[in-house]
Design a protein around this nucleic acid. Structure first.
Lengths: 238, 238
DNA sequence: CGGTTTCGTGACGCTTTTGTTACAGCGCCT
DNA sequence: AGGCGCTGTAACAAAAGCGTCACGAAACCG
């Protein structure tokens, strides 16, 4: 999942510099140089993090920070202040107003990215390790939650591990033996056909549509080889 | 609740300076100048945050940071690096190794405190004396009061700590072992099934409605994984 | 086109995991 | 001392998930 960042800054050359570096690192960037608009965008764009300059039009960065914290919808939004005001008093004021980090200009773009990552690592764990996603199937391993096109999918422990294994290696074909090793454990010994049954259960759960509908099957059977999770639904014979 | 901070630093005058400022601000301080000992203390003292110097005896600060992150018991422990190594490359390395913030010497003690507060505010909300709230459950950690949709909920000490832990990490699944570590303490050893009983007591108290009614259960059981506090009540099959 | 192999599917005991209740011990307060 | 609230453990009940089998369908092969 890509993280979206709201950049609130009015210096054109800085906007370009920061945007370039963030996009290079895989972030989506939304920009504004206006304090009032920043508040609106923070609600509407639902960014994962805000970078705030102090001196901007209409509302100071510190005031934007305060209002973001006060509004329930954005009270939890990660904020990094990035400003020329580098006095001790300013830094402390920024942090105490609710900023999660505070950097002063001039700054290193790479350090900015590192600090953003550090903040997101704590506050949006789903963006880091815990999230797997492929072909409309999303898995949050820390919350133990799976969704298909937004609808939550109910899985038993074994199906969960099985799906995770597929999501970790999308497109790759695994033999029943490999799956038993990876999902059940190297020492456990069960019939290979057991895999079939769990594939069946996994398919049933993942392909269940809104009501009684069937969604396209993303688990491909490779005859005499095994199974794989695949973005392209199997072809149809009319 | 007072927060406990582990200060890993070997310069005597700095130790004094930092300790003085932290204690003045209401933190408990545990100190060591030794990298190996830092790891031990991080486990045994259960600090709420670690301040790490880079140049210390036995293990470098960066290595201590890496090992703390790797050990499950301390993987989540907030870390602030405080060091003379201020190159861009060092800062980035520190942050990418898992530090939550990175300050360089010389530094302002008041800024250090502000940054520590900023980190703790996010990672240990309960320490700020503030209110925790999630999905209609509100907890005032200082007054030791809990309400569900406005009605006050009566909890025993253990259930209170258990709920607080869930509120601090909403949505996340914890194994019984993790809960015992976090809520009972790392050194206490009780049966894992004890957790089940307290979950039961917590559910009973939190889900008690106006008269004899049952409110939707917000504590989700994740079979063979643990429990989590969750906004979405489990779905029903008719 | 039969024969053969491989896979899909539903049913069914069995085991594991969790829910629930009861109880005995402990510390604390009056 | 007695009562009271809280805790951890055990024991039993309920639920959920698991692995295997049997049979039919589909794919493959000559």
């Amino acid at each position: 999942m890509r993280a979206k960042i709201l950049l609130v800054e009015d210096d054109a050359s800085l906007i370009e510099l920061v945007t370039y570096n963030l996009e290079k690192e895989g972030f989506d960037v939304v920009r504004t140089g206006d304090g009032e608009e920043a508040l609106t965008l923070a609600e509407e764009e639902k960014p994962d993090l805000v970078i705030l300059d102090w001196m901007i039009a209409n509302l100071s960065g510190i005031e934007v920070c305060r209002r973001l914290r006060r509004a329930p919808a954005t009270a939890n939004l990660p904020i990094v202040m990035l400003t020329a005001r580098g006095d001790e008093a300013d830094r402390i004021r920024g942090l105490e107003t609710g900023a999660d980090d505070y950097m002063t200009k001039p700054f290193s773009p790479r350090e900015l990215v590192a600090r953003i990552r550090a903040v997101l690592r704590r506050l949006r764990p789903a963006l880091q390790g815990g999230a797997l996603e492929f072909a409309g199937i999303a898995m949050d391993t820390t919350a133990h939650r799976v969704t298909r096109d937004g609808r939550t999918v109910q899985l038993g422990p074994t199906e969960f591990r099985l799906l995770r294994h597929f999501l970790e290696h999308p497109g790759r074909v695994f033999s029943r033996e490999q799956l038993l090793d990876a999902v059940w454990g190297r020492d456990v010994y069960v019939e290979q056909r057991t895999v079939d049954v769990h594939i069946r259960r996994l398919r049933k759960a993942v392909n269940a549509g809104p009501n009684g509908e069937e969604l396209p099957d993303l688990i491909r059977t490779v005859r005499s080889a095994g199974y794989s999770l695949d973005a392209v639904p199997a072809m149809q014979a009319a």
